[in-house]
Design a protein around this nucleic acid. Structure first.
Lengths: 97, 97
DNA sequence: TAGATAATTAGATGATAATCTAAATATATG
DNA sequence: CATATATTTAGATTATCATCTAATTATCTA
């Protein structure tokens, strides 16, 4: 009945508009930090901060490519979040499609 | 392409664990403020604050019943939120089931 | 109509969170 | 190996948010 930390970190991750924008960008293609940065006005440090929160929630994954780090949307966790959202609103004993 | 205030207020509304708990309680049945309060430790003022944020997002509706106010989950906005979430993660040109 | 009950609003406080600049780390390359 | 480039980390600042107590508003009932 209690909410897990994992669940809480997911809601925290999507609570910020800039992070939602990052997710929306990453759903189209994987990108380096610099490429993500080109969509925003704030500093690289701020972007790093947002990415770390998305990573903590496991909504994104990173891999190294030379000096760059390539961020990708983690679709399975995105799916999981959608499921959690459905459960938030659908009655316990309702059909699950 | 820009996110609406309505959309932002939805994500703000579900960002707090107590408000998610309120929604989870209301999905089962409509309740007066006092009845909702019985599930929590915080003050009535704090509950009022949370309810006002849920109202602003239109995730809940209120009606008067004598001295009490009865809160209900607004299912259509809940559905809308689910749709917004799906769009956040699904590529623009993917099938919509 | 006075007092009781239900809920909200006002105003203050402490905790989180978003952002910045500067410094640090890691990798690539001349 | 020294320097440039990409990104993260540290530490500070400011803004937002959750919470509280006290006061207010609205309704009911004796």
């Amino acid at each position: 009945m209690n909410e897990s930390n994992q669940q809480a970190s997911l809601f925290t991750a999507i609570a910020d508009v800039q992070r939602r924008k990052i997710l929306a960008i990453l759903k189209e293609q994987e990108l380096s930090v610099a490429d993500i940065k080109s969509h925003f006005d704030f500093s690289g440090a701020t972007l790093s901060h947002h990415l770390s929160i998305l990573k903590k929630a496991e909504l994104v994954r990173v891999r190294r490519q030379g000096q760059q780090r390539i961020y990708t949307l983690n679709l399975s966790v995105a799916e999981e979040l959608l499921l959690i959202m459905k459960q938030l609103f659908n009655r316990e004993n309702d059909e699950i499609e």
